[in-house]
Each structure stands twice: as C-alpha cells, then as structure tokens.
Design a protein around this nucleic acid. Structure first.
Length: 342
DNA sequence: AAACCGTGGGC
DNA sequence: TGCCCAAGGTT
C-alpha cells in the first residue's frame, strides 16, 4: 500500500478539487474542457466551459453553429485557433458518425495533440495511456531529479515513460489527473509544499534538498517590445470596429478597435488590423480617446491621445462596421475590446 | 526544432 | 514593474 502509485491515487481521492468537468463521462464535454485548459488556468476556464457547453451541448450542436458564434463564446479566452480547430473537429466527428474512442484516433482530429488525446482517452474511455503536460513534466522531473531540460523529444519521451509507470491501469484517468493536480496544488513551480506531497518519500529532488532546481530551465528567446496606439471611435451610441482577416496569424477573424504601431520615437509607423484609416472616419463623429494598457506576448497596445491623419482604405479580408455596445457581446472579440467596454 | 499563438495571476 | 508560466498544438 506504500507504493507511490497508490499513495498518489489515495491523495487525489482525498484532496482532489471538485471541478465542473470532473464527474462527467461525456467524452465531448471532457474534450471541450481539455481544449480550453490548454495553456490556460482552471479558474479562467470555469465560466467559459459552463457557457460553452450550455450553448453547444453536443458535437452536433457545435458543428452546425457558425464559426463567429463559436468565437464569440471564446472571446477573451485567448488562443482563438483552438476554437476554430475545435469547431472543425466537431464537424469531422459528426461526419464520421461516431466519437473516436482511442488516443490514436483522437489525435487525428485537428487541435488534438499527444496530451489532449491521452487525457480524453484515459478520462473518458479508461485507456491506460499517460499524459505529459507541464505539471507532469515538473512532477516527474523532480521525482527522478531529471538532469536535462524537458525540451527535446527524447527527454519528453523519458518523462512520459516514468509517468506511465505511476499509472494505475484500473484508473488511468484518475491517475493522470492526480499527477496534474499534484503539480498544480503541491509540486508547484515555486515554493512546492513537499510536506503535503504523497510522493515525498521517494522524491529524488527532495532528497537532494532543492526541488525547485527541477525541471532544468529551458532557454527562452528574447522578446521584442513594440508600442501601439489604439483609438476608440464613437458616433452617437455606436463604436467603430474592424474585423481582422481570417488569414491573420494573430487574432484572426476577431473584431477590434483600430490600433496602429508606433515608431520608437512615438510617431505612427505602420498600420495594423490590416487596415488603413484616417480622415475618412472623421465625418463629424466623436473621437474619444481612452487610456488603457494591454499586453500580448510581445506587443504593447496603449490607448492614448493621438491624431489620425492618413487617408486610407480597408485591406484585403478585413471588414469595418459600427456597433452598439449591446450588439458587441455577440461578436468575436478579444480581451482588448472586453476590457475597454467593461 | 524553434517560433508562434492570448490572457491573467503571482511575486 | 517585469518576468514567469499555465491541463499544448501547429507549422
């Protein structure tokens, strides 16, 4: 009874959180939760998950919805490509006529990689396949004092092997979730609570005395900062928005207020949103400039005083329109717009 | 393989 | 403030 696998599962049974996507065996619901949870915290996902499943309770409901409605429910969650791929994959499931039941089959769907395939297969279908997410990487790296950064494919393979050795074949879904839960609550990136850890007795990093030393750091690229200017343009009770082209890499198909890149000296240097704009808007409408800051990974958007002077036109694939605030809720938007209207 | 995609919380 | 980094996948 003192083997690590049993200790881990017993700990999970005792202290595991009661999350909305636990307590269901519906593979579709579990799938949706796993997509939303990609690189996204549990507390952020909660409200989105509830609304999304309420509106799209089945793959059929999701598949037949227009993509803009899917994106509207995803608005503010980030990584919008996830929503597009989920929508596309739902169409494939419906076309196929049945839900994929193995990790190998699941991984063929767009947006489902090794992690998500293993998570859905183990949780919904009891397939004894180990997940390797950021939590498991950290837990296992510490448990075996893994001496290389979890970057190369070979390193990940090794970590997954060890994770698999901790799997209870009778309860693979709970075993996987236990490892992730442990990483999220106890074996945290900083200040792990080794006192509360069910694996402490066999943890190599703990024995060495400095569990935080693992996993070994992955080299990170330098980030470039760019400054932008964003402007809220209003006329009466309407706001001017632009819909970014579906071909954009960043925020494809998302409605936003106009923002432009600034040169280092603060002058407008480059037009964003795939748009050109300027005098053509200023047809007597009120230009209201708002102060606000928002940061994408390496892009700072700053709302501040500015002059719009260049004449312009809409770029290929982009679209412009005036909307009342109550209409904007049903549009695909980003957090920039959501914060602005808050 | 490395770079890219959004956002928010924690320190 | 600035930086880390989160239930990753795609290219």
């Amino acid at each position: 009874m003192a083997d690590p696998s049993s200790e881990l599962l017993a700990w999970f049974d005792r202290t595991g959180r009661d999350l909305p996507w636990r307590g269901t065996r519906d593979p579709y619901a579990i799938w949706v939760s796993e997509i939303m949870l990609q690189q996204t915290r549990v507390e952020t996902v909660r409200p989105y998950y509830r609304r999304f499943l309420e509106r799209f309770p089945t793959p059929e409901a999701l598949a037949k919805a227009p993509i803009d409605e899917v994106l509207a429910l995803w608005s503010g969650l980030g990584y919008y490509r996830r929503a597009r791929l989920l929508h596309r994959a739902a169409g494939e499931v419906v076309a196929k006529g049945r839900f994929p039941t193995t990790a190998a089959e699941l991984e063929e769907l767009p947006g489902i990689g090794p992690y998500t395939a293993a998570a859905v297969a183990s949780i919904a279908f009891d397939e004894a396949v180990a997940v390797l997410d950021g939590n498991v990487e950290r837990v296992i790296s510490r448990w075996i004092a893994f001496a290389e950064p979890p970057r190369a494919a070979a390193a990940k393979l090794r970590l997954r092997e060890v994770a698999a050795s901790l799997l209870d074949p009778e309860r693979p879904g709970d075993s996987n979730q236990a490892l992730m839960e442990l990483g999220a609550l106890v074996c945290r990136p900083r200040s792990p609570s080794c006192d509360a850890c069910p694996l402490v007795a066999s943890c190599a990093a703990y024995r060495e005395g400095d569990p935080e030393a693992y996993p070994l750091p992955v080299e990170k690229r330098a980030t470039e900062r760019r400054r932008h200017l964003a402007v809220l343009v209003e006329r009466k009770d309407e706001i001017l928005l632009f819909r970014r082209s579906d071909d954009e890499d960043l925020l494809a198909g998302i409605w936003e207020i106009p923002w432009v890149r600034l040169r280092d000296d603060g002058a407008t240097a480059e037009l964003h949103l795939g748009t050109r704009y300027g005098g053509s808007w200023s047809l007597g409408e009120t230009l209201r400039l708002v102060r606000h800051g928002i940061t994408y990974r390496d892009i700072e958007v700053e709302l501040r005083r500015g002059e719009l002077s260049e004449a312009g036109e809409l770029a290929e694939g982009a679209e412009a329109g005036w909307f009342r605030r109550d209409e904007i809720e049903s549009l695909p938007t980003s957090s920039l717009l959501e914060k602005l209207l808050r």
